[in-house]
Design a protein around this nucleic acid. Structure first.
Lengths: 228, 228
DNA sequence: GTCTATAGTGTGATAGAC
DNA sequence: GTCTATCACACTATAGAC
């Protein structure tokens, strides 16, 4: 009985180890060449097993993608957590925004896998949500709430108009920064402005009044307060 | 001689017509199923020719993509030109920004082809620029300058700080809106906020002072002007 | 110019022997 | 659990006859 248990325990550990190894190699291939060029054959050769062996640990190629997305979201979340100690919510959002873009540019292929090639049909997405196995989306939502929380703090301090929902603001800021990363990653000739400058402009647009004495754009209608 | 010329002229026209037909069918397939599922076989079958015939009119599948991108940029530019008559530059930028997102959501597959799957290597891009045959990029730059012009007007009216370059602002705004479209097109579960709301928030962030009496975000540092 | 035929290469996934 | 062998496809692009 005792030895029996030990044996099955060993089996389980070996199994786990191989799964981990598959994931590890996959991660490296994706980082280097992108998920598109991660084929089951190539992967099998790299770990010195036959292609068929992979299907004992992952249901499909897409299943590996899911696992890698989960890893990616965890590491993005870590990048955010490094800034949670910043007290001022606007300053915190600035730091997290910068961290987000840095993450995307530092790990372009992982970022692509997470946010740019999830082209599943709408019904597949709904299916995954219903079954509750879209772990990446759950993680994404959790990370996003770090941002939403900061916006909620801004609102609590009356530094955000009442009509702006914190979650919507968080998603808006996220989308804006995603655009910068995405355009850079597609490698087109435009935009020619460096990403850091684009980030600066975007964050200033959102948080300028919190960072400087003059608003970024001066209204033509508003009375000039400097002549009082 | 006259009849000779007529004959070659007919040939040229037939040739042109077939090229146009190929493009037309390609456009429809891309609109319906996306460029990824536009195969030379499928295309050939649809126009009732052999696959080989296509290579007489287009160097490769990518060459067809280029032609379609050029078409897409032309139609995007048209959408922008419809708003050039708006006198106030901030209002014009608002209208063009909305038009941009509408274009992307209305023609998702064309948009994807134009801005989301141009994953050529950096050196290929440089090569194309050197040879001057990246017509899409040239068109893109031309369209972008419609936006940059409006920012330049804002600056001329002292409604934009001197340190903000109009072209950089244009690219920044573009990138921000692209992010909204791109996230919606990848069909992930997030963001759950509707695109129109995200656009509203983004444009408000950029142009709020021009549209309302109170700035969107209230600074904690700035003296409160309402207590004078 | 247009065709047929095919080369050449890749893919994800599975059946069945061991 | 792991293998070999293979199915069943799909693709771009070209050679060579007509």
């Amino acid at each position: 009985m005792g030895s029996q248990e030990r044996r099955t325990e060993q089996r389980r550990e070996q199994r786990e180890a191989l799964r981990e190894r598959i994931l590890e190699v996959s991660r490296e291939i994706v980082k280097r060449e992108g998920f598109a060029s991660l084929s089951m054959r190539k992967l099998a050769e790299a770990i010195d097993y036959s292609p068929a062996a992979l299907y004992l640990h992952f249901k499909s190629r897409g299943d590996i993608a899911r696992a890698l997305r989960v890893e990616g979201h965890a590491s993005l979340r870590d990048a955010f957590l490094a800034h949670t100690s910043i007290a001022d919510p606007a300053a915190r959002l600035n730091a997290m925004g910068r961290a987000y873009v840095e993450f995307g540019l530092a790990e372009p292929e992982t970022y692509r896998l997470m946010f740019m090639e999830h082209t599943d049909s709408a019904q597949a997405v709904a299916e995954a949500q219903r079954k509750g196995d879209d772990h990446a989306a759950e993680q994404g939502a959790a990370t996003l709430s770090l941002i939403a929380d900061a916006f909620a703090e801004l609102r609590a301090a009356d530094r955000l108009p009442a009509h702006a929902a914190p979650l919507a603001c968080a998603e808006g800021l996220w989308a804006n920064l995603h655009g910068i990363v995405a355009l850079k990653l597609t490698g087109a000739a435009l935009p020619e402005t460096p990403a850091t400058t684009l980030v600066e402009l975007s964050l200033d647009a959102w948080f300028a009044p919190a960072n400087r004495t003059e608003p970024r754009f001066i209204s033509a209608n508003r009375p000039d307060t400097s002549t009082r």
